[in-house]
Every structure is written in C-alpha cells, then in structure tokens.
Design a protein around this nucleic acid. Structure first.
Lengths: 158, 158
DNA sequence: ATGGATAATTGAAAATGTCAACGATTTATT
DNA sequence: AATAAATCGTTGACATTTTCAATTATCCAT
C-alpha cells in the first residue's frame, strides 16, 4: 500500500487529491490543464522542430494581420526580448522574415515565408490532434463551450 | 499611429491579434488566461509571503487528505524536487510539518500547523478575490460552467 | 535474504523569466 | 523647426524555474 488514505471506489490513486479545496480554484485548474496539454503539444510539435512558443509566433506570422514584434509579445504574454530570440531562430530557418513597419520604421512586421506557411499548415494539424487528445474528456460541444468561456473571460467576446 | 492595420471599432489595439487563428487554440487560451490570472494571484498572495506554488502546497497541507510529497508533486504537475524546496521554506516558517507516512516510512505526509492553517485562511480569501478579478468578464454561472468543464477535462467529472 | 522498485533529497545543467540600458525612430512640446 | 519625451527592437545580466541523474532509506516480490 502506498497511499495513506484509501481511495474512493473508481478513483485512481493519482487523483486522491482531487478532493482538496484547491481543485475548485480556477487558477489551479487552468494551470493543470494547460500543463497536461503542453506536454502533448510539445511532443506533437517536436516533429517539426517547434515548441509551443515558436509555434505561436509562427501562427501569428502566418496571419494576415501584419503583427509587429511588440504586438506579438503583448498577445503571447511574453517579454519583447523573448520574441526576439524566437524570431531569430525562425528567421534563420527561413520560416519568417522581418520587415520594417510601413508607418513606423522602429517596428518590425513579422510574416511567414512560403516555407514557413507550409510548415505551419502541417504543424497546425498536429497541434489540433494534440488538443483533441488533451480535451478527450469533453464532447465537441463542450470543447466549444470551454473555448467560448475562455475567450469571453479574456476579451469579453465569443 | 502605432498599429499597422486599423483596429476594428471597439477593439482595443492590444487585441488586434485576437483575429489570428491561434485565438481558437485551447492551449493558447488556457495559457493566456492562466498568465493573466497568475499576475493577480501572485500580487494578492505576496501580502502573505506566498506565491501560487507555495499557496498550492499550503492548500494541500491544509486538507484532511494527508498528502505525501510525491502525491503533491503529481497533483501540482511539479517535479518532486521542487516540492522539497517549497516545503522546506514553508516548514522553516512554521507553516507546515513533515511526518513520516504511517504505512510507508519513505513517504512524508505534509500537514499544516495551526499557524499554517490561519495563514491559509487569510490567503485563501485573497486568492478568491484575485480569481474573481481575473474572471470578471464572466457571470458567476459562467465561472461555474468553466470550472466544471476544466474539471471534466482533467478528471472526467464535475 | 536478496534484488528491484519507490520516496525524498541533493546538486548540476538547461531553459525561461525579468529587467535595465542602448540606438534608432516617432510623437509631443515649445 | 528644434528639442524633449516616449516607443521599438535588441542586447546582456541576473534570477527563477525546469529537468534530470545520482544517492540514501525503505518497501515489496521472489
């Protein structure tokens, strides 16, 4: 016997602590689900030489929104200096390019090359599969509800 | 003018990238909401000399579940060595104690002292307020739904 | 009894996060 | 128009966190 308290019937031993009050904490639940998803995500993205971070940057570079590095930093909740490093790597791999902002030459607009777009399409499919695995406990309707609630909490929209 | 593309009416400039496809990614949404919440959480907990991590450990120590360090590590998605450091600190502050497992003397059960329990009650109130602030965009029903979905995704239960 | 696993611990190495300073450019003030 | 103040990307320093291998004590299976 390893646990100190008998598990409830149907409860896996690693879930013993689900009964603790912190399991009702939104912050804890977000952290835990994110941690579990990150493992799957990073595993899936490794095939493409990407991690969650570089994948996110590549995704933004693939949008038609012409994001600047600073906008990326803000949006991804990262320090601008981390964006520099991430883009340095992607640029060296020929996946994205930096161009001076049209209206503000201090800023640099990051966009994907054709190669970057091709890689992103493949990585995106893998990331979707990883997400589905991470949320396997939810029906597709529930996944939609979850995303809607998260988006509303962040931006007050769906 | 700072942005390269005109914002939609009613859209704050820092939300320009919401239109990017990654905004539909559950992993990204979880990371972003967690990041926003962590700032508020850590700010609130700093008054008690705690961070999210030490608060979580203290919360588990305050449960009646007699968690071992390994169970804490698994449950909090942390390496066992990080739990050691966190508990070292809490123990030195007199907030928790380690006791050998009754059935397995390799394991150590962590429980809160009276002082730890008193501090936790106060910190818990502050953490609840921080959570409310982080989820201010949601109604209380929606907060319940969100937590329910997160719990179901993690453990297939509500 | 012995050998193989598991719990906590330590310590090192790698990855990440945080922050201050700099040159180039833009915006605001006079 | 000239100057001052602010902003963007970048660099580098430093702290924190993560990850992992090794160690000791204890448990479990044979």
């Amino acid at each position: 016997m390893t646990t100190e308290v008998d598990a409830q019937p149907g409860t896996r031993p690693e879930d013993k602590l689900v009964a603790a009050s912190i399991s009702l904490d939104a912050g804890f639940l977000l952290a835990k689900l994110h941690a579990a998803g990150s493992v799957l995500n990073n595993r899936a993205l490794a095939d493409f030489g990407l991690k969650e971070r570089s994948y996110s940057v590549l995704a933004l570079a693939n949008s038609e929104l012409e994001p600047t590095q600073r906008e990326m930093a803000e949006f991804l909740s990262l320090d601008p200096s981390q964006i520099v490093a991430l883009i340095d790597e992607l640029e060296q791999r020929g996946l994205v390019i930096r161009a001076p902002g049209k209206l503000d030459r201090r800023a640099k607009i990051v966009s994907a090359t054709a190669e970057g777009a091709a890689l992103f399409r493949k990585a995106e499919a893998a990331a979707r599969a990883a997400e589905a695995a991470a949320l396997a406990g939810l029906s597709s309707e529930e996944v939609g509800e979850l995303k809607g609630l998260l988006r509303k909490a962040l931006w007050n929209r769906d």
